[in-house]
């Protein structure tokens, strides 16, 4: 269980969220929603032990995350970062294999199970065909899928994903969300992801964290929070609900609405 306890996050001159508390259990899929700059990435970093909160803390299986060694933590929790530095010269396979680093048992080379895990991850994201292409030659969407594959190869029980759908086309957005749901529902992993599209959040997330501007944060079951009113309040703009095929989706509408009659 991944737990945020009375978590208060600050950046210089601003409080991002105050006294946020929630617990992510295996099999659950949590979505973090909020405007630009509302602290979504900061929250992911705090949950991943990459940033020290102003107060409160994060614990994994009842143990404070700061008490974990980096390597021990990386075996149990993986993070898909929103931005990654460039500077890797190798190919796709080599990149995905680096996800096995926390599991590496020898200094030299990878064990057969590492290679199997990397290959399986590549196949799951339909990337086996470009396994030996140089990472630098890939398109933005391909690179994003490669990064998800690396996270799968890492095989953590807790996955934090900061905008997992960025750069993906519509089909790959759907495939990625189906894959993530399978991880939670089928394999019992715990997922926390930052999303912008209400369609995906509404359909795939069972719990939500809403980060309002000004430091107010709400968390709870999606059934309670995924409503027209609460999303309008969150995003600060008028939304129109569109639906069909059992999916609920909210799209922004211009404030000046045209009323006929």
């Amino acid at each position: 269980m991944l737990e945020a306890r009375a978590l208060t996050l600050e950046v210089p001159g601003r409080v991002l969220c105050r006294d946020l508390a929630f617990a992510v259990k295996p099999g659950e899929c949590w979505g973090i929603l909020g405007n630009n700059g509302s602290g979504k990435t900061t929250l992911v970093q705090a949950l991943g032990g990459l940033r020290t909160p102003a107060s409160g803390g994060v614990s994994l299986e009842g143990r404070s995350i700061e008490d974990f060694g980096r390597r021990e933590l990386a075996r149990r929790m993986g993070v898909l970062l929103q931005e990654e530095a460039h500077g890797f010269w190798g190919n796709v396979m080599e990149y995905v294999l680096l996800g096995r680093h926390p599991h590496a048992r020898t200094v030299f080379g990878w064990m057969p199970e590492d290679k199997e895990a990397a290959l399986a991850a590549l196949e799951r994201l339909d990337l086996a065909g470009i396994a030996y292409r140089s990472l630098n030659t890939l398109s933005g969407g391909e690179r994003q899928r490669v990064r998800i594959a690396q996270l799968l190869a890492q095989a953590p029980e807790f996955l934090l994903l900061d905008e997992p759908l960025q750069h993906l086309d519509l089909r790959h957005q759907l495939e990625a969300m189906e894959l993530l749901r399978e991880l939670a529902a089928g394999e019992g992993k715990a997922l926390v992801m930052v999303l912008h599209e209400t369609l995906w959040a509404g359909h795939y997330c069972d719990h939500l964290v809403l980060l309002h501007d000004g430091g107010r944060a709400v968390s709870g079951p999606a059934a309670d929070l995924f409503t027209h009113a609460s999303l309008e309040a969150l995003y600060g703009c008028a939304l129109a609900e569109v639906g069909g095929g059992g999916l609920r989706h909210f799209v922004p509408t211009p404030e000046r609405r045209v009323y006929s009659g």
Binding site: A74, E84, A85, L98, V107
Partner: peptide
């Protein structure tokens, strides 16, 4: 060498992959 490979992905990424 293994940790250096991971470090080439950037500091934050290296930290998430278990490198001190």
């Amino acid at each position: 060498a293994g940790a250096l490979n991971v470090l080439s992905l950037g500091h934050t990424k290296a930290a998430t992959l278990g490198v001190a």
